[in-house]
C-alpha cells in the first residue's frame, strides 16, 4: 500500500524543482518549464488528496482544470516569447526591461 505522504513528498520535490528552475534560469522558455512543473505538483496533490481523504472526485475535476489552464498558459506564454524574440533577438529575461518597443 502506497501512503499519502509518498505522493506529497514527490509533489514537494516537483514544486521545489520548479521554483528553482524559475529562479535560476534566465531563458524565458526555461521559466515556462518551471511553471509547468509547479502546476503539475499542485495537480498531483489534488488527485492524491481526492483518493486518500474524500469519497468524491472533486480533486480530479480540479486537476483537469489545472491541465486546461496550463495548456492555455503555455500557448500564450510561448506566443509572448516568440514575439519578444522577434523584437530583441534574444530570450534572455534580463533584456525585458522596457514596457514598449
Amino acid at each position: 500500500m502506497v501512503s499519502l505522504s509518498s505522493y506529497l513528498i514527490i509533489s514537494m520535490i516537483l514544486f521545489v524543482t520548479g521554483i528553482t528552475v524559475m529562479i535560476g534560469r534566465k531563458s524565458l522558455v526555461a521559466i515556462l518549464l518551471g511553471v509547468e512543473l509547479v502546476m503539475n505538483a499542485a495537480a498531483l496533490n489534488f488527485v492524491a488528496y481526492s483518493r486518500y481523504m474524500t469519497d468524491n472526485l472533486d480533486g480530479h475535476v480540479f486537476s483537469l482544470f489545472i491541465i486546461v489552464i496550463a495548456a492555455a498558459e503555455a500557448a500564450v506564454g510561448l506566443a509572448i516569447v516568440i514575439r519578444f524574440f522577434q523584437i530583441k533577438e534574444t530570450i534572455h529575461v534580463d533584456e525585458a526591461t522596457q514596457l514598449r518597443n
Partner: peptide, 9 residues
Amino acid sequence: YATLGADFV
C-alpha cells in the same frame, strides 16, 4: 495518476 486510480486525468 494511474496509481491513484485517476484513469481519465
